[in-house]
Design a protein around this nucleic acid. Structure first.
Lengths: 258, 258
DNA sequence: TTGAACGCTAACGTTACGTGACAGTCAAGG
DNA sequence: CCTTGACTGTCACGTAACGTTAGCGTTCAA
């Protein structure tokens, strides 16, 4: 019945996971005052142990020992209220950490996307990338970083590499039929393949996004007419961007028009 | 293109939510070293801002500045890895706080249940409660606190008061028919009412718990025969516990037998 | 009875800044 | 041109919450 477990300093310190010195300190500042045996040894009971738990919670929440003293002595009678406020503080802390995690993941996505941009543009002429980027930014009034972050941030390096290879293979195939008319079946098959590639990426970036007629038409026009873009893709073939643009346009007109 | 936003001490301090002195300090210990203008003023760029964010995360996770220096310089190349480990640490912290919340809620339940016990036994003879409690503990090999915690911990003080009143009203009604035979319709109607009361409480404490035949029979036997219990309930009527036990037994035999 | 384990106090050390004190810098206004 | 107020800089001491070390008493099993 008389459940009065008592603890020595070292026992309580092990129980609560704090150092003996800490208990000495709390005694000194009057935060947790144990009984004393005749020989001067400190003696803690169950109530002390409970109070210590509370102290530790508040301490972990970055309250000063002075504040903790006030809080605990103030709510000494109203235990339930004290516990409630502690729980609320812990909830707040949870949410705060969640925000930190979220912001961290945004940063991670941004870094990953930059890496992926490097992967995707690997082997392509460095100095022309900047011009191409500027063109895209001017034409569509979008930050290049914004685009790539949305489009590439969600992929791992491996996936990015796979995409790069898929793109290269496509380019190779396209160059092989680049002399054929855009209406030809071979070219249109490739146009569809390209359309599917892009759609896949876009839908991965944002759920339910469709590459519709208008967007495709704009893109085709850009490909067919923008100089920096032509320059950039001349790496594959002199006429690459122009022909791809035309292929896209025909594909959009015949297959995407609603 | 040259996105090089630069910050003064005060600007960066506001941006990151730290004091100017803190930035001075980080400069001093070599954790975050800004550029210097000719006049000696500190100058921070975007990279500094990013590094500061990382510092703050680690600091909030209680790393020492020295450890943070090591961590950041060690993973300076491998940014992605650093961010990953930070996220993992934040997750761990989340879980730790969750454990604290859980343990806190257990404590809250225990306190609430003790308050509710006081409410439920209010007005009943204090000194007989202990005997009754001992009897229950001996007979059922259960800690009284365990029972009440499971049964009453989930109720608020208001709900406990309502339960107490319901119980008192029942006792009054039962005393009014206590002279009638246990088989009588009036008594059996009350037995059912009592059974429903208890069931409701039990099912509230633990989802899907049913007060079955065996349990009811044991309880009825206890009520009808245990002396401390008789004593305790004699507050209502000398024969209260015995008659209630018999009413329960009949009810169990006629209505609960599977 | 002795030595290892534990306890006490006292006092200085450490970390991560806070808080002045005192002085130079700079743009705006009288 | 000079002042004024907002910033900035470097010392340098202060503080909170213990860590650490030193010196010394207590307990208890071997």
């Amino acid at each position: 019945m008389d459940n009065e477990r008592i603890y020595s300093v070292s026992e309580l310190s092990r129980l609560a996971g704090v150092s003996v010195r800490t208990l000495h300190h709390y005694d000194q500042v009057g935060l947790l005052k144990p009984w004393r045996k005749e020989n001067g040894y400190r003696e803690y009971d169950r109530k002390h142990a409970v109070r210590l738990q509370q102290i530790i919670i508040y301490r972990d929440l970055d309250f000063s020992l002075e504040e903790i003293t006030r809080l605990l002595d103030l709510d000494a009678d109203n235990q339930a209220k004290a516990l409630n406020s502690q729980r609320d503080l812990l909830w707040q802390r949870q949410k705060q950490i969640q925000r930190m995690i979220d912001s961290l993941e945004v940063t991670m996505k941004s870094i990953q996307s930059k890496q992926n941009v490097d992967i995707m543009f690997e082997g392509l002429p460095k100095e022309k990338i900047a011009d191409y980027e500027k063109s895209v930014r001017d034409r569509f009034d979008l930050s290049f970083e914004g685009i790539t972050e949305d489009l590439l941030g969600g992929f791992s390096s491996e996936e990015a590499r796979a995409l790069k290879e898929e793109g290269d293979r496509f380019a190779e195939d396209f160059v092989n039929v680049i002399h054929l008319p855009v209406e030809s079946e071979q070219v249109q098959r490739l146009a569809e393949r390209h359309h599917d590639m892009i759609s896949k990426m876009a839908s991965f970036a944002e759920e339910g996004v469709e590459l519709d007629y208008d967007t495709a038409l704009k893109a085709s026009h850009f490909l067919a007419n923008d100089e920096a873009t032509q320059e950039f893709y001349s790496f594959y073939h002199d006429d690459y961007a122009r022909r791809l643009g035309e292929a896209w346009r025909y594909f959009a007109e015949t297959r995407l028009k609603s």
